Computed example of a mutant assay.
Amino acid sequence: MDLGLAGKTALVLGGGGGLGSAIARTLAREGAQVAVAGRSLAPLEAVVSAIRADNGKALALEWDLGDLARVDDRIGRVEAALGPVDVLVNNTGGPPPSPAAGQPASTWQAQFEAMVLSVIAITDRVLPSMRQRGWGRIITSTSSGVVAPISNLAISNALRLTLLGWSKTLAREVARDGITVNVVVPGRIATPRVAFLDDQKAHRESRAAADVAAESIAAIPLGRYGEPQEYANVVAFLAGTAASYMTGSVVRVDGGLIQSL
């Protein structure tokens, strides 16, 4: 299927991580020019090198998303090198595991700025040019915790739910401008982040990480963790022309893990 992304410019936040790198490379294979942004330059440059090796065009942007003062500069670099952003993939890193009670206000504030305000500010920066062109895609990657809160991930559960309400509201505001706004919810995808969470749970419970992973897999109807590429395929579909009538949606990529309707 031709997703109609040839010549489009995509910006993938968190582009050096497991999900972000898979999304960036998939969009590039579909013909998009891709900017990948994240805090650490080395993994971003690895993604860019892989895209260029496949004759794609890509740009690495070292960017601490919690630093809102850099938004205009970083988007300006994308526009200068690749053109105005057509596809924005909001994919931020997850906060440290924590219970809901007793977290310092400073922790909540720092994570809110990095996970929520950054996404809103970046989206606001690229929306005017999308509106002028009458086409755009805003795709926000969250967590299964927005549907069924995950124990000991209270900050993630709360802040990603904020993005859900924001995204649904924004979808109605920009639909007539040819812009779609959707949320993608990963279940247990085999990324370094999920391995880290398994290790943390194993440490808290004095268990082997392999046993924790096996327990998680047993709760997934498909009987395995998902692959980053499987997640990236769904994001790429939402970014393309084939998904032009999908907006305001929450799409689960979880192997059937989430039991609620």
Results as ranks from 00 to 15, higher is better:
V184F: 01
I138G: 04
S244H: 10
P96R: 15
T169F: 13
M1E: 13
G226L: 09
I220G: 03
V71D: 07
M1W: 10
V181W: 01
T123W: 03
D177A: 10
I258T: 12
G4F: 09
V253M: 06
A202F: 06
M1F: 10
V185C: 04
V253W: 11
L163T: 06
F196E: 15
D72R: 14
A195D: 13
W63R: 00
A58Y: 02
S206D: 13
V251K: 11
T162M: 15
F112P: 06
A209C: 09
E230L: 03
K8V: 01
A239P: 09
A35G: 00
G165Q: 11
V78P: 00
T92G: 10
V253N: 05
V174G: 11
L238W: 07
I150N: 02
Y231W: 03
Y231E: 03
M130F: 09
G16A: 15
A42E: 15
P221V: 07
G134Y: 08
L19N: 01
R224W: 07
A154C: 02
V12N: 01
I138Y: 07
R207A: 15
N152E: 15
G56E: 06
G240F: 01
V235W: 02
T9N: 12
G66M: 06
Y231P: 02
R131E: 11
V234F: 06
T26S: 12
V89F: 01
G102Y: 12
T26Y: 09
G4D: 13
R131V: 04
P84F: 03
S244L: 06
S260D: 11
D211T: 12
W166V: 02
V184R: 06
N90V: 00
I189C: 05
L117F: 04
H203R: 15
T9A: 10
A24S: 06
D64R: 07
L222N: 11
V181K: 04
L164P: 05
A101P: 04
W135D: 02
M115E: 12
G248Y: 07
W63S: 02
R224V: 08
A10I: 13
S156N: 14
G226D: 09
E227Q: 13
S151G: 14
P104W: 05
A190M: 09
R176M: 14
T26P: 15
L68S: 14
G18Q: 05
A243P: 01
I138R: 05
L159M: 13
E215D: 12
S118R: 04
R125I: 09
L163C: 10
L257A: 00
V194H: 02
T191A: 07
A175F: 06
I155G: 04
S129C: 10
A101H: 11
A154D: 00
Q111S: 10
I189K: 01
L163Y: 03
R224A: 07
G178R: 00
I179W: 01
G255T: 08
T107Y: 13
A175Y: 11
T247A: 11
I258Q: 08
R137G: 04
A175D: 08
H203V: 06
T169R: 14
I258A: 08
T107P: 08
A6H: 03
P149E: 05
L159F: 12
L5N: 01
